[in-house]
Design a binder for these strands. Structure first.
Length: 516
RNA sequence: GGCGUGUUGGUCAAUCGGUUAAGACGCCUCCCUUUCACGGAGGAAUGACGGGUUCGAUUCCCGUACAUGCUACCA
C-alpha cells in the first residue's frame, strides 16, 4: 500500500501573497484533495531580517478567502506541530551536526569580508568565485584547520556556519513530475550554507528536514528552485532518508504580460492590475498594494483563472468549480513553459461567475457596494430609504444588471439609477435630434403618467406608445431621450422596467427635470 | 560567463507521427436588442530557425537563436 499523500505550501512571511503563490497553493490543494491526502501550511520564517509582522496572518486570510484552507497549519495545529520553522529551530542543529559527523558537511568560520575577498581573488568581476570544492581549501573551516583549532574556535564561541560539502564530479539526477529526469553536475554547485551563524537553518536544510519529519510525499514549488534541487537531493541521501524523498514538481513561472520575466508586484502597479490576492498593507511603508479581492473579484473566479494558468484539462470547458477542478486535476497536464498573465482573461472569468451566479447570492455580494454607493450619493448626514436595500429588491436589481457586470463594483455602477436620481445626464447623446415637438411630448406624457391607473412595465410602455403616436412621433425617436432622463446615459436594462421599479413619482420627477 | 529550464496566433492553449493545426480571451464584421450589455453567426491571426530520423513531422533527435531562472549566512 502506498503512503498517504501529504503536500505542503511553505511561504516566507515577507509580504503580500503573489498570484504565483496562490497558484502553488491551489495545485497543492487540488492534488491533496484528488488523492485524499493532507495539505499542510508551513511557515518558513528562518530569515529574521526579512520577517514582516502580519504577513503570516495575511497569508492565512488569503487562503481562507480563496477557499483553500490547509488541514494542518500554525493556526490549526496538527500531528507534526509546530508548523513555524522559527519554533522548530532546535531540530535542525541535530541534523546539521549529523552531516558534519558523517563528513558531508563542515564548520566554516569565515567572515563575510573573507568570503568577499575570496570571491574576487579566485573569480572575475562578472563571474565571482563560489565557495566550493576549489576554493574551500583556501578558507578557514574544519576541513583546512587542525582539529584542535576547530575545537578551540567552537568552544570560544566564534561565529560559524555549517556548509554542505559538495562532492566532486558527481551526476545528480532527479525525476521531476513535470519535467522528467533532470541532471546536474555536482562540481558546479557551491557548498551551500545549511545552518546560519544565528543558529537558524537556511531553506536548504529546513525544507529537507521538515519535509521528512512531516512526511511530505509530493513537493510542489516554483521553477526557480530547480537549480538548488541537487543540494536537496544530496541532503536526502546524506541524511539516510533517500527512500522517503518526496516526488518533486517544479511549477512553471507566471510571467509579466508585456515583455518577459517573472510577474512582480511592480508590474501590477505599472500596468494597473493586482498581483496580490488581497490588499496588502506594508507595515513599514504604510503603502497599500491592491488585491484581487478588493478589486472586485470573486474568489471562485480568481481560483478558476489561476488553475488554467499553467495547467489545462484538455477539454473545451473553462469554467470549473473547485470540486470540478479537484476531479479533473492532474500533474501530467501541467505545462513546462511559463505563462504570461492576462488581466483581460482574468476579468472574463470573473464576468462569467457574476453572470452565472444566482440572484440570491449576488444580492448579498452586491449589498456592501450598494450601501456604499447610497451613502456617497445621499451625503454623510442623510439617510436613505431602507426599502432600497432589502434582499428582495436587491435580487430584482442584480437579476436585471448582472450581465452587464465584470467586477463586483460594477453591480453599483450598472444599477445606481435604481437607487438614486442620476447625478449627471448625458444630454450630448440626444441634443442634435432634439426639438420642440419632443420636448412637448415629454411634458404632456409626464402629466398623463400622473393619472395612469396601473403602474407596471406593460402599462407604462403602452401609454408611451400611444402618446408617441398621438404626437406624430415614432417610438424610436423618443426612446433614447427617455432612457437618458431615467438613467443618465446610454446603458442599462429596458427603460420601462426601470420606470416601473423606481416608481411613478420618481419617474415623473426625472422626466420633468430634463429640459434642453 | 556557467549551469538549469523552456519556445504552437497578441495572450491562455488542444494535438501524445498522418487534422482544413481545436477551443478561449482580446480585436473586427454582422444578427438580436429602438440603449448598453448578454447571447448567436462569421472573420483576421500560429508551429523561432537550421539540420536530421521517417513514406510522412508542430509532434522524435541534434544544433542554433531567443527567453527565463539560479549562480547569498533570501526564500
Amino acid at each position: 500500500m502506498s503512503k498517504k499523500v501529504r503536500v505542503r505550501f511553505a511561504p516566507s512571511p515577507t509580504g503580500g501573497l503573489h498570484l504565483g503563490g496562490v497558484r502553488t497553493v491551489l495545485y497543492n490543494y487540488l492534488f491533496a484533495r484528488r488523492h485524499g491526502g493532507d495539505f499542510v501550511l508551513r511557515i518558513e520564517d528562518t530569515d529574521q531580517t526579512r520577517f514582516v509582522t502580519g504577513a503570516e496572518q495575511y497569508i492565512m486570510d488569503c487562503l481562507k478567502w480563496c477557499g483553500l484552507e490547509p488541514d494542518e497549519s500554525p493556526e490549526k495545529g496538527g500531528p507534526f506541530a509546530p508548523y513555524r520553522q522559527s519554533e522548530r529551530k532546535h531540530l535542525y542543529y541535530e541534523y546539521a551536526q549529523k552531516l558534519v559527523d558523517s563528513g558531508h558537511a563542515y564548520y566554516a568560520f569565515d567572515t563575510t569580508e573573507e568570503i568577499e575577498k575570496m570571491r574576487n581573488t579566485y573569480g572575475t568581476d562578472d563571474h565571482k568565485a563560489q565557495y566550493d570544492e576549489t576554493t574551500r581549501v583556501h578558507m578557514r573551516n574544519s576541513l583546512t584547520l587542525p582539529p584542535a583549532e576547530v575545537i578551540k574556535l567552537l568552544e570560544s564561541g566564534t561565529p560559524y556556519v555549517i556548509r554542505i560539502k559538495m562532492p566532486r564530479n558527481q551526476q545528480i539526477r532527479l525525476t521531476d513530475m513535470i519535467r522528467g529526469e533532470v541532471t546536474f553536475d555536482s562540481s558546479l554547485v557551491d557548498d551551500k550554507v545549511l545552518l546560519k551563524a544565528d543558529g537558524m537553518p537556511t531553506y536548504h536544510l529546513a525544507v529537507v528536514v521538515d519535509d521528512y519529519l512531516m512526511q511530505i510525499t509530493h513537493a510542489f514549488r516554483g521553477e526557480e528552485w530547480l537549480p538548488s534541487a541537487p543540494v536537496h537531493v544530496l541532503l536526502w541521501e546524506y541524511l539516510g532518508w533517500k527512500e522517503h524523498m518526496p516526488l518533486w514538481a517544479h511549477l512553471p513561472l507566471i510571467l509579466k504580460p508585456d515583455g518577459n520575466g517573472k510577474l512582480s508586484k511592480r508590474d501590477g502597479d505599472r500596468l494597473g492590475f493586482p498581483v496580490f490576492a488581497m490588499n496588502w498593507l506594508d507595515p513599514k511603508t504604510n503603502e497599500i498594494t491592491k488585491g484581487f479581492r478588493e478589486m472586485g473579484f470573486m474568489p471562485q473566479a480568481f481560483v478558476n483563472m489561476l488553475a488554467l494558468l499553467g495547467w489545462n484539462p484538455g477539454v473545451e470547458k473553462e469554467v470549473f468549480s473547485l470540486d470540478e477542478l479537484v476531479q479533473t486535476f492532474s500533474i501530467e497536464r501541467i505545462h513546462k513553459g511559463g505563462a504570461k498573465f492576462d488581466f483581460e482573461k482574468a476579468k472574463w472569468f470573473n464576468a462569467q461567475y457574476i453572470h452565472h451566479a444566482d440572484n440570491e447570492t449576488l444580492a448579498t455580494l452586491a449589498k456592501p457596494y450598494i450601501e456604499e454607493g447610497l451613502k456617497n450619493a445621499v451625503g454623510g448626514t442623510q439617510t436613505y430609504d431602507s426599502r432600497l436595500t432589502t434582499q428582495e429588491y436587491l435580487q430584482k436589481i442584480v437579476g436585471l444588471v448582472k450581465d452587464r457586470c465584470t467586477l463586483l463594483p460594477d453591480l453599483w455602477a450598472q444599477s445606481h439609477f435604481f437607487f438614486v436620481t442620476p447625478e449627471t445626464i448625458d444630454l450630448q447623446a440626444i441634443k442634435e435630434k432634439w426639438n420642440e415637438q419632443k420636448q412637448q411630448f415629454f411634458i404632456n406624457w409626464a402629466a398623463i403618467l400622473e393619472s395612469l391607473p396601473d403602474w407596471n412595465e406593460q402599462a407604462i410602455e403602452a401609454s408611451f406608445n400611444e402618446h408617441a403616436q398621438q404626437h406624430g412621433l415614432k417610438k424610436g425617436d423618443v426612446m433614447l431621450p427617455l432612457r437618458i432622463m431615467l438613467v443618465g446615459g446610454k446603458y442599462g436594462p429596458g427603460v420601462f422596467i426601470i420606470a416601473d421599479m423606481i416608481g411613478k413619482e420618481e419617474t415623473i420627477k426625472r422626466i420633468n427635470a430634463v429640459r434642453f
